[in-house]
């Protein structure tokens, strides 16, 4: 099935089996293997990418549903030579161990910071209408869709804290 997507700013054409998930399309057809498959069921967040500005589990949606959508993957966030501020903060704070959940964590956190900026409340927000302060509790809650079995959680929170509020992430 023919699908056209913008991935990391580039127009990409895809002709894949309609059963192909967005995750498998990125990994197996577009050679963007940064996004990982930890469960294929929307339960771990390893496959998180940003579609039209919002974070989603790419294993839970079919590639052909994303015709003309704008997709950002970890490869579009930064490269080893030019890391984003958040990626660098993950390195400095050891916000990972095995690194398998990490691309998903970073895509998720990148979009999460935008959600906070846009004033979205979370389950732990005391006042759902007020502008949210990015506390440890808020970050932990908002990042709980991304499992990390190595459990870099405290370091992930520190890394996000480090860049939150600064203009560059």
């Amino acid at each position: 099935m023919k699908t056209t997507l913008t991935v990391n700013g580039q127009l990409r054409h895809l002709d894949a089996d309609p059963r192909t998930t967005l995750l498998d399309a990125l990994r197996n057809h577009l050679n963007l293997t940064g996004s990982k498959k930890g469960c294929d069921h929307g339960q771990c967040g390893a496959c998180t990418v940003i579609v039209n500005g919002r974070r989603i589990n790419s294993c839970l949606s079919l590639a052909c549903m994303h015709d003309s959508d704008e997709v950002v993957t970890i490869e579009g966030i930064g490269t080893p030579e030019h890391l984003s501020a958040l990626q660098q903060a993950f390195v400095s704070h050891d916000g990972f161990q095995c690194g398998f959940c990490t691309p998903g964590q970073i895509c998720s956190a990148t979009a999460m910071l935008d959600e906070v900026e846009a004033g979205w409340p979370s389950h732990v927000s005391a006042d759902v209408t007020a502008k949210q302060d990015l506390t440890v509790e808020e970050i932990s809650e908002r990042m709980s869709g991304n499992l990390c079995r190595c459990s870099a959680y405290p370091n992930i929170v520190d890394a996000i804290m480090d860049v939150a509020g600064s203009a560059k992430r």
Partner: peptide, 13 residues
């Protein structure tokens, strides 16, 4: 820092 860290955070590991 882990020397392979930059690869892991950019999806290149």
């Amino acid at each position: 820092d882990r020397p392979e860290g930059k690869l892991k955070v950019s999806g290149k590991a």
